[in-house]
């Protein structure tokens, strides 16, 4: 089986978010980049588990410039066999999906894994776009995936429950909690990652469909109003009369 895992970088979850250039750019100064958590914990690890039982290869693909390589190396340290970096700044989801599709279409992957949304732009767009560009079925928000020959059995979350489904490979699947348990790279993995192949490919020319005009800080909340533990009726009153939520 040939597995592809799409990996994105994201600012560390504790990053203080600020903007520069008249609020038109995310301020990357001093930002610690990590692998987008759901890409790492669920997509990558499930691909590795399936490879371990079924045989095959796990390749990662990332759209980004050289500064993303430490994140890619971490994927190799966790266990991916090789990695591809498409050498472009990511400008929007359509551009990223198109560049990955250009690379993937001649590679005949059986399953293309992604995480849930990235924690920077929170779009959750790349996997669906990629599936459409490659004309493949797409299973979103999956919590389980098993393969039996070319038949995939997956469970995905729906609002208020779960759905079990069957679909033939090749397919695109976005993964969330439940899919696998995160793995921490060990020393051997980290050493091996240094020499695993990381291929850099030149990007095709793809136009974006959207552009961020500007950023704003989130709305400020006023100071917290404390209510005494002996007077919970006051909280009920405030929720009704002031907040008007009950």
């Amino acid at each position: 089986m040939k597995f592809l895992v799409c990996i994105s970088k994201a600012p560390d979850t504790t990053t203080k978010i600020t903007f520069t250039d008249n609020n038109t750019k995310f301020n990357e100064d001093k930002v610690q980049w990590i692998m987008n958590p759901t890409d790492e914990w669920y997509a990558l690890v499930r691909a590795l588990e399936l490879k371990e039982t079924l045989g095959g290869t796990v390749t990662t693909v990332t759209v980004g410039k050289g500064d993303v390589e430490p994140v890619i190396r971490k994927g190799l340290a966790i266990g991916a066999d090789d990695a591809v970096r498409i050498d472009a700044d990511d400008t929007d989801a359509y551009q990223v999906a198109s560049l990955i599709a250009d690379y993937a279409k001649s590679e005949n992957f059986d399953v293309i894994f992604t995480g849930k949304e990235t924690i920077n732009y929170n779009g959750f767009l790349v996997p669906g776009m990629l599936a459409e560009l490659l004309d493949l079925p797409y299973v979103s928000l999956a919590v389980k995936l098993e393969l039996n020959g070319n038949v995939a059995t997956a469970i995905r979350e729906i609002e208020g429950g779960e759905e079990t489904l069957q679909v033939n490979t090749p397919l695109v699947i976005s993964c969330q909690k439940g899919m696998a348990e995160a793995r921490i790279p060990n020393m051997r993995g980290i050493m091996a990652a240094r020499t695993k192949p990381l291929k850099v490919v030149a990007p095709g020319s793809v136009a974006s469909l959207t552009v961020v005009k500007n950023f704003e800080p989130p709305k400020e909340r006023g100071n917290v109003k404390l209510v005494s533990a002996d007077n919970v009726e006051e909280l009920v009153r405030l929720l009704h009369e002031e907040a008007k939520v009950i």
């Binding site: 978010i17 995310f26 929170n122 959207t210 552009v211 005009k213 950023f215 989130p218």
Partner: peptide, 12 residues
């Protein structure tokens, strides 16, 4: 909302 609620973006 972007950056998991730590910012807001206006997309064209």
């Amino acid at each position: 909302a972007v950056f998991s609620g730590k910012g807001v973006a206006n997309y064209s």
